[in-house]
């Protein structure tokens, strides 16, 4: 049972690394977002360090969303998706594994880049660690929720923007608890663990809802 899952995981990982280095583009976009914000709010380091966790989270959200539109579309365009539906493997698991590979190729680099980008925003080491940890736990939820949007827009030529519009409202809880957990770690009186555990719960819920909903959408999309 595991060999087909591993084959799918490795194939998706290979594809995302080889096709235009999507991991690099995501991190680059993340960097660009973080660079642009100070031009808007001004270079005041105190202000930046206060809103730093939020900037990093929003940057990660946008970078995740922009990378998602090809998650299923590339497979649909060349007929792979039809064959996957016929392969005799549970589609929900297929979606989950594809999301996992996608997260490792594009989400994990964002998490790794976060501490570096936090330097630009003058975050304290503690805040840096907190933001990175919340991103590590929270970005899988963004990918899994985004997969629903990717599955719904799979048949559209230019689904990328619509995907973002569909998914952003669904991603709001993740953003709320991600940022508040990171903030709680910085400002003392608020407990860190409460929002952090809720964030973990959100990721786990997304790991169920995302694949089930995406698989249903993909079955309909095969018309």
């Amino acid at each position: 049972m595991t060999s087909w899952a591993l084959a799918l995981f490795l194939r998706d990982l290979r594809l995302s690394v080889r096709v235009g280095g999507s991991a690099l583009v995501g991190v680059l976009f993340f960097l660009a977002v973080v660079t642009v914000i100070p031009f808007g709010v001004g270079p005041d380091l105190n202000l930046l360090s206060r809103i730093g966790p939020a900037i990093l989270w929003i940057g990660a959200l946008l970078a995740t969303l922009l990378g998602l539109d090809r998650l299923f579309q590339a497979d649909r365009d060349d007929g792979t998706l039809d064959l996957m539906l016929m392969a005799g493997r549970p589609l929900e698991l297929v979606v989950l594994i594809k999301c996992l590979a996608h997260w490792v190729a594009t989400g994990l680099p964002l998490v790794v880049a976060a501490p570096l980008l936090a330097v630009f925003l003058n975050l304290e080491p503690l805040a840096m660690g907190a933001v990175t940890l919340t991103l590590l736990v929270g970005t899988p939820a963004l990918t899994l929720i985004g997969a629903i949007g990717a599955a719904l827009t799979v048949s559209l030529r230019r689904g990328g923007l619509l995907l973002a519009v569909l998914v952003v409202p669904l991603a709001i809880p993740v953003l709320i608890f991600g940022v508040s957990a990171a903030d709680a770690a910085i400002h003392d009186p608020v407990p860190f663990l409460t929002p952090f555990l809720i964030l973990c719960a959100l990721s786990l819920i997304a790991a169920v809802i995302g694949p089930v909903a995406s698989a249903a959408a993909l079955r309909f999309a095969s018309d």
Binding site: R11, R14, L15, R18, D78, G79, T80, D82, L83
Partner: peptide, 12 residues
């Protein structure tokens, strides 16, 4: 199913 599309990934 052997359809019109080849399901071949150029990068692999």
């Amino acid at each position: 199913y052997f359809g019109h599309q080849d399901a071949v990934k150029p990068a692999l």
